[in-house]
Amino acid sequence: MNQKDELLVALRPEISTSPAQNPAEAFQNTVLRPILKFQHERITAIFRQHIQKRKMNLSGVSTEAWKSYVETAFQKDLTLRYQLIGLALGMMTEEEWTEFSGDKELARRLNNLLVQRMQSILE
């Protein structure tokens, strides 16, 4: 691991999780979750900017309507999706990125974690 990769790993917060059942879950718990926790403020800022750009009125929005909106926005707004995914990819080491880029299950897990983070903003 080069110096840059060591610094990237050192920035990540420690997260306690249960033992992983499979390699994808281990990657999620050791790489994706800490990165998203570290980037939470940026994720929130990007999504709030998205809401402002769309002139969304959040007063009186039910939790279910909010969750549905977040899922739809993440699926349909490619700019938003790519910005958020880029936040995570930019914090990965070269080895982690290589593992991530070849695995659709890891991409699915990252997408789900990002949606969950955005859904929690309103709560």
Rank of each mutant, 00 (worst) to 15 (best):
R81V: 02
S62M: 01
I43F: 11
K67T: 00
L36E: 08
Q75F: 00
N57P: 01
K53M: 08
E95C: 09
T72V: 08
L87T: 02
S59K: 00
S101Y: 02
R81P: 07
A88E: 12
I51R: 04
L58Y: 03
F47H: 06
T72L: 01
T44I: 13
N112R: 11
T72W: 00
T79L: 04
G90Y: 08
K37L: 06
E64N: 10
E105R: 13
S101K: 15
E105S: 15
N111V: 14
S68Q: 05
V31A: 10
T93D: 10
L32G: 05
L87W: 09
E99P: 09
H40D: 09
L80V: 03
Q49C: 03
E96N: 14
F38G: 08
D103C: 15
S59P: 12
Y69G: 03
A45E: 11
D103T: 12
R81G: 04
D77A: 05
E64C: 06
Q75K: 01
T72S: 11
R108V: 10
M92D: 07
F47I: 00
K76E: 04
G90F: 07
M92T: 04
A45H: 03
V61Q: 10
L89D: 08
A73S: 07
L80R: 01
Y69E: 01
T72K: 07
G102C: 05
T98L: 14
P34C: 13
E99Q: 13
F74E: 06
I85W: 07
R48L: 10
V70S: 09
K104N: 11
G60S: 10
F100S: 14
F38V: 09
A65G: 00
M56D: 01
F47R: 04
V115W: 01
H50E: 05
S59C: 05
F47Y: 11
E95H: 11
D77Q: 12
Q83A: 04
R108M: 09
G60C: 06
I46Y: 03
N112C: 13
L87E: 14
F47M: 05
M91D: 07
F100W: 14
T79A: 11
M56R: 11
E99V: 15
R33D: 13
E71Y: 00
G102V: 02
I46F: 06
F74W: 06
Q52P: 07
L78D: 06
R108W: 05
L84E: 04
L114S: 07
S101T: 10
I51D: 08
E105W: 00
R42M: 15
E95P: 10
K104M: 13
I35T: 06
L32Y: 03
K67M: 14
F38D: 07
G102N: 08
A65Q: 10
L113Q: 03
T79P: 04
S68W: 00
I51E: 11
E41H: 04
F74S: 02
L113F: 01
L78P: 02
